[in-house]
Computed example of a mutant assay.
Amino acid sequence: MKKIICLIFISILFYSCKEDKIEFVQSKVMNNKFLLKDAPSKDSLIKNLIKDFLLKNLIKDFLLKNPSKYKNNRSTIFYKYTADTKYFIDHLPDPGGFSSYELEDVENQRLAVFDISKCETDTTKLIGEFYYYGINYNLLQIDTLIYKCN
């Protein structure tokens, strides 16, 4: 009997310590939209996760491999993964009719935007700015991740 109780206790302890894996889910129809699944509850952790993801994946791709891929769409937007936002993994925004469903409907689920634009003082140079809105959707901070305009 003691072995069974001990085994149950260990199983409960092991199960309760299991953390969900944080995942960036890219929209299949809008390649510049990402949903953050199983995000931590602290703004600072989410911000660092997104910045690390950008630096390891998108910025390296932009700078080294294929900058022309970003010619028309230089903004990358991150949302919380919720029942409302997961619709946009497989669907484009639906602006018309009785059942319209657009990204503006889930703006309060937006976590961050990474925007690549031309410098105002020298249009031959680019700047990559990171706008972090956070869990409560109020702009908390703007960081420059790539380049800087003089």
Rank of each mutant, 00 (worst) to 15 (best):
F34C: 02
S117H: 14
T124M: 09
F34L: 03
K125D: 05
N72R: 09
N73M: 07
L103S: 07
Y81T: 11
K56Y: 02
S44R: 07
I77Q: 11
D94C: 02
S100H: 10
P40L: 05
D94H: 14
K69Q: 12
L35D: 07
G97S: 04
D38S: 14
T82P: 02
K69H: 14
D94R: 13
I46C: 07
F88A: 06
N73I: 10
D52H: 02
P93M: 09
E129I: 08
S100P: 06
S100W: 04
L55E: 15
T82H: 01
Y79I: 04
D43L: 05
L103R: 04
I50P: 02
D105Q: 02
I77P: 05
T123C: 02
K47C: 09
G96H: 07
A39F: 06
S75I: 12
A112I: 01
N48G: 06
R74G: 11
T121D: 13
I89K: 06
K56W: 00
I77V: 15
T123E: 12
K71W: 12
L45K: 11
L58R: 06
Y101R: 15
R110Q: 14
I59L: 15
L126G: 02
D52E: 14
I89W: 05
K125E: 14
K69A: 11
L126Y: 15
L49W: 01
L58C: 03
K125N: 09
T121E: 13
S44T: 10
L64A: 08
P93A: 10
E102P: 02
L103V: 10
I116K: 12
A83M: 08
A112K: 04
D84S: 13
F62M: 13
K118Q: 13
P67M: 11
R110P: 00
Y81A: 03
I50L: 04
N57L: 00
L58K: 10
F88G: 08
L36S: 06
I116L: 13
C119D: 06
L35I: 04
V106M: 02
N73F: 08
E120F: 08
